[in-house]
Amino acid sequence: MTSEKKQITIQAEDLTVGYFRKKENIIISDTINFSFSQGELIGLVGANGIGKSTLLRTLAGMQDKLSGKIYINEKLQDQYSTLQLANEVSVVLTEPPASKNLSVLELISLGRQPYTSWMGTLSEKDKVAVNNALQATETQELAHRKCFELSDGQLQRVAIARALAQDTPIIILDEPTTHLDLYHRAYILKLLKKLVSESNKTVLFSTHEIDLAIQLSDKMMVMTDKASYFDTPCNLIEAGHFDVLFPKDTIRFDKTTGRFSIKK
């Protein structure tokens, strides 16, 4: 890590996320404060239903925040148009692509949409970006396969490749490791780590792989029903924030190994 000050890419001030339904706000999580910088891999952890996805969707502009402020590259998120935001933030969602009939190359090329003309045809520059994305995710040999022929692990790599092709300074991934075996979970997270160190992007991912995230993330965000904590994994362990992540009667966090174990 260099000591020079890195530019802040996403910042939240007293952010409250949730839903607006039947004329009242349903608050999922509130008083969230953090600032993510360039070249940081940030792991977001928390129990099911604590609001990880809601927070990610809010940051990506897919749903409105309830209150507070979000800055994307030091400009308020509300001031971005949908297209401008697509130049800053790309996403990898838990949902598979709606059409599995797309070829891998077609799917990844769609990531260039914010930059293409109304016809959506690729320029030379777009083709270079698509090729780079294929290379970075080692999906070249899948390029002409159809999505329905891919395994879950391959599909996840392709989804990440599409986000890379979109060429944004920020990538947000919602549980990129679900449905994958241990090897692929480690593979995907190492891939994210590599992307961050090579391209100076900000990569934010939510996960249930807390021990893997502790090992790989530069910073982590722990969401609990009382508050959200944002710091380096070591500091979070020291402060004991992982201990309160889950009810203590079933599993407990071991500070020395950085792992959860089942309470016997």
Binding site: R57, A60, G61, M62, T82, L83, Q84, L85, A86, N87, V89, S90, V91, L93, E95, P97, A98, S99, L102, L107, L110, G111, Q113, P114, T116, W118, M119, G120, R162, Q166
Partner: peptide, 23 residues
């Protein structure tokens, strides 16, 4: 025909399409 590009984006689903700048 004018909507071709938007239709292509929709093949990924609404959320993805929106994240790529589609109204």
């Amino acid at each position: 025909f004018l909507s071709s590009k938007s239709l292509n984006a929709l093949l990924l689903g609404e959320n993805y399409a929106k994240s790529m700048g589609l109204h």
